[in-house]
Design a protein around this nucleic acid. Structure first.
Lengths: 239, 239
DNA sequence: ATCCTACCCCTTGCATACTAGTGGGTCAAG
DNA sequence: CTTGACCCACTAGTATGCAAGGGGTAGGAT
């Protein structure tokens, strides 16, 4: 009997593109499936099953899973199986710590950038995103809101000119998005996030490193709210 | 004819341990060889050659190389070869930026830790390392000095209780150690490093987040000195 | 002499086969 | 009914073979 596929794929995306390494594409598929909670914490994901589903051999799947274990999304237990990582308070706080460290450094560098034109462009682009976010909040479109939140932080990171900084932030952010996607507790949070983003922009515009850092720090500590309710609502996903 | 082995191995370490995945062990071997400049930037390292040398198949070697490419130590060019990454000013500055962001956050957290006993233990352990470092400097033992420098920063990072923070710092530091190992420009630097470490300890002891962060920031910006001479001395290792 | 072309070797990417080890399920003994 | 041993199915780790493509080289044409 055919098992339930681990990852649902639309027909047009069932096949992998031929002009890019299969392992890299598979990595992206699984990562997105984990972030969106399509693959649930604690769930076993077999190399063989994924290989059949993607129509490839175990080798590229295995390479993708190794990469995912590096960023803490799965855990590979030799001779036992590969499992989607469960949440743990320690790991979430760790991701938050790393992300805050990086993002504080990002806004500090940006706010103290002597080239005012650069600061202005950053501010303009972030204000555009913020205004779109207000629209998304008004429409109660949580998905769009979250994507724009991503854009906001990525845009800031790109101004460091250090691509790995942006990718690190994205990776650490993903850990928290995963938790956030457990339930849509965002309705009441729209307003707070919007005002926090506005405060960050304002501080950068003013060229104040201290205020920028403080505003970012406050913003990123906001997840503590969620962390007080979610573990109790979904204890099965926590270690 | 037998080619020159890529990595020199002592007889007793020529074989891999059987109770640990081969890929992981090989990863460590190659990483250390790259940091110590035993494998030179730009040098080609073939999967086949390494496999023969370690007495394994290409598979575990390949997995190790993929991991090394993730941390930017090698570059895998499909159908062309795998090469030890050359230095680039951008990548070095990027590593420095990430490391500063993390280490500043580390000492900030430590300095503001309300539990004074924890601060005291951190200070004590770091002072012990610092005193060993003074001995190493007096003996002009650059290798010991560098190892102790590692210990100093790792010890601080461990006090965050976030293991990934320590490993990130270690990884970013490795990029700079690689450059540093190009030549022993350290003789004149001993004194500066020692006083900078002392300043960091003093600020933590005083419980001042601002002073701790500033002291760490100054310390990590010190590499700029090296970066002004090394690229000119070894242009062949830079892109 | 120079340029172009065809070929061949070597590279990584992927597929397949095999090994060792874990955990569960079954069956028999107490 | 409980408990223990054994067997089997399935896991990840590794070995090996094949496919596809890039690059250098040799040889011929101009």
């Amino acid at each position: 009997m055919a098992k339930q596929p681990l990852i649902s794929m639309r027909p047009e995306s069932r096949g992998l593109s031929y002009d890019r390494p299969a392992a890299s594409q598979i990595f992206g598929f699984i990562r997105d499936a984990i972030i969106s909670m399509e693959l649930l914490p604690g769930q076993m994901i077999s190399e063989t099953a994924l290989a059949q589903q993607f129509g490839v051999s175990r080798t590229p799947v295995r390479e993708a899973l190794i990469q995912l274990s590096n960023i803490g999304f799965v855990e590979v237990l030799p001779q036992r199986g590969t499992y989607v990582s469960k949440f743990s308070m320690e790991k979430i706080l760790e991701a938050r710590f790393i992300r805050e460290a990086l993002e504080v450094a990002v806004v500090t560098q940006l706010a103290t950038n002597p080239d005012e034109a650069v600061r202005l462009e950053a501010v303009n682009r972030c204000e555009k995103i913020l205004s779109d976010q207000k629209t998304a909040a008004a429409d109660d479109d949580a998905l769009a809101f979250q994507n724009l939140d991503d854009s906001f932080h990525q845009t800031l990171a790109e101004f460091t000119q250090y691509p790995r900084v942006a990718s690190f932030i994205e990776a650490e952010k993903a850990h928290m998005d995963r938790v956030r996607n457990l339930s849509l507790h965002v309705s009441g949070q729209y307003k707070r996030v919007l005002s926090q983003h506005a405060a960050i922009i304002k501080a950068i515009k003013a060229g104040s490193a201290e205020k920028s850092a403080a505003a970012m720090s406050v913003h990123l500590k906001d997840v503590y709210n969620i962390l007080e309710v979610i573990p109790q609502e979904h204890p099965e996903y926590f270690v």
